[in-house]
Design a protein around this nucleic acid. Structure first.
Lengths: 351, 351
DNA sequence: TGTAAAAATGCAATCGTTTGCAATTGTTTT
DNA sequence: AAAACAATTGCAAACGATTGCATTTTTACA
């Protein structure tokens, strides 16, 4: 008898720890099927029953076992977000723009009832799509950044798995891309410098990077339309990090003098690095050299001088990406989407 | 016969889409138990068999269904990382320091075989711990930031669920905290300013915020030990955002003049905002006002002038946090851990 | 060669939900 | 009041992997 009591109390303790749907159903005096349907607001269950079971559930703060539910329904309600960092430098992971993207994605996903599984290191292994999707860890993938080569992304696209990519939406690829019109961005930035009187405008960024390649095209187009100088030495190829920018500008001025009076950069962080190099040499900004950033990170206006930049509408982009992914789940057609950009004139350029 | 073939081909198509462990076992001519053990490198299975099955698995790029595995083992190998943002401003989520923390946590978690489920918005709902853990979405929780009040954190701690918190490890709380010695950080920063000749040193940050409260203590201790000025107006309470800092400093100078010659800030971002306000008024840095940041974000050395700051060793902290969490899983005792900090002297202070 | 011990593999129950279909209860119509 | 119908609820079979225990195979030793 004593033994029975012990067992009994242990049993109670256990179920108290982890109430199961069956347990909840028993408490409510219904079957598990009814309990399940009630919690899922299935209209086939009488309203009164639904209310009663839900009340009981929250009273015992019961929550459905996600693993079991996912196994049964073959749906996880999880989206894997992969930060496609080409260069695993300290700098690139610390670009505030990335955090902004992840933060907005998180909001947009939660809003639609999804959770965010973050990954910045799995891109290394070839098999990431398979890893996340065919193992039912996630229902879809959002890749942030196309990088220099989109082979891997393209390979996943061919398998037809649900995926949306942040990148250049004007590029002709077989997957859904959401992003800014980078060519236009490069064009507007360059034009702005030309209009403010710059004659020799440098492009500071890696033209082999897919998204930057588009900005580079815009840069060249603006220059040639305006009959501006378009020499090779005006293209300074660097990684998207502020230190790389700092070093490149320093070195360039050291070896070749100040042969430019304007800089189009690939990100605000890069612009910051360039600014530093210029200020150390007491070069006037924007009087001697004007500079345009890209992204409009929160601190852009806090730089000294405040940074003229191309703003990317990250919040909207995140929403669109999630929507496009959901469309894929529903088997509906999707399309690459261009998110509006905007020139934000500040004090790093004349105007 | 024809019908049989049709069924057969459909079967092949289906298993080709989503190979299951049972399917793999059949291909290998073994039972599912053997296949399972082989993939998990169970030494009870002959080495040759293990190799064969693994080879077959990677050939068909098979991967275990995580949902089923989690259901059976009651282990998810997922950790929920919760960004405890007190103020949901644009700025605070864009602090690069946060991204650094998340990035390093991701690395450390992956290294130990865990995945990172990110959440920045669930802190709002009271029930986050229960949501993630009792629903078997995650095995443990890492909370980034203690915020102004740790009620919710404390409530979770009392339930005994696996959790580690980034915060102030010297605070006397019932949960495991990993973080820098904030009091020491505040002390060192202040002392550095005193040593460089500052007489009136402002503390720029919210002393009610748990972590900052410690830094504030350090600040006061350093001042009183050195017999420095310790007035109320030297405490400028603001949120941890650069805009708040910019506005507060601007406003303070406007209304009360430049009554200070040194600033201890609550983060590098805050320092950046303060710098901006000072530079706009052509106040010399560090000649008229010296300033010390906190965190040592990547761009600290790219500010102009480069920023003297207290470096937090985020990488190490992330590793320790994950280790402590794993210890909790194993039922072993854990302890709050102080991560070393370091003063990085740069050009925003005299030395 | 027979037998005991050791090594390798298989059987079958289980994890907790969901859902097609059957069964029950309640309501309306003739 | 019986029949026909609608509204609710329950039964039981999945979902796919893991693991204690039973069973088979192999090896070792007499």
């Amino acid at each position: 008898m004593l033994f029975y009591l012990l067992v009994e109390s242990e049993y109670i303790l256990k179920t108290d720890k982890k109430l199961t749907l069956a347990g909840l159903a028993k408490l409510a005096g219904v079957s598990t099927s009814t309990a399940s349907r009630a919690l899922n607001d299935n209209p086939v269950i009488k309203q009164a029953t639904r209310d009663k079971i839900k009340a009981l559930a929250s009273k015992h703060n019961f929550s459905i076992n996600a693993a079991a539910s996912r196994l049964r329904t073959q749906k996880t309600n999880v989206i894997a977000v992969i930060l496609n960092l080409i260069d695993h430098t300290e700098q690139s992971i610390s670009d505030p723009f990335l955090l902004k993207v992840v933060g907005e994605l998180n909001q947009a996903l939660n809003h639609k009832g999804y959770e965010l599984l973050l990954s910045n290191s799995f891109m290394a292994s070839d098999d990431w799509a398979n890893y996340f999707l065919s193992s039912s860890r996630a229902d879809g993938i959002i890749v942030v950044g196309q990088g220099k080569s989109d082979e891997k992304i393209d390979a996943v696209a061919r398998t037809g798995l649900p995926m949306v990519v942040w990148g250049d939406p004007t590029s002709d690829v077989d997957y859904t891309v959401v992003g800014s019109d980078n060519k236009l961005g490069g064009y507007i930035a360059t034009q702005h410098l030309i209009n403010s009187g710059c004659k020799n405008i440098v492009f500071l960024g890696d033209p082999e990077h897919l998204e930057l390649a588009e900005r580079y095209k815009g840069y060249r187009q603006a220059l040639s339309e305006a009959g501006g100088v378009l020499e090779d030495r005006l293209t300074l190829s660097i990684d998207i990090t502020s230190t790389a920018a700092y070093e490149k500008i320093s070195e360039t001025i050291l070896h070749h003098g100040l042969f430019f009076d304007g800089i189009v950069t690939s990100s605000d962080m890069v612009a910051l690095g360039a600014l530093k190099a210029l200020k150390e040499r007491y070069i006037g900004i924007p009087s001697e050299v004007a500079i345009v950033g890209f992204d409009d990170i929160a601190m852009a206006e806090l730089f000294h001088p405040s940074l003229t930049t191309i703003r990317q509408n990250v919040k909207k982009a995140a929403e669109v990406m999630v929507n496009q992914l959901v469309l894929q789940f529903e088997g509906k057609p999707t399309q690459s989407t261009v998110i509006d950009i905007e020139l934000i004139p500040r004090n790093s350029t004349r105007h």
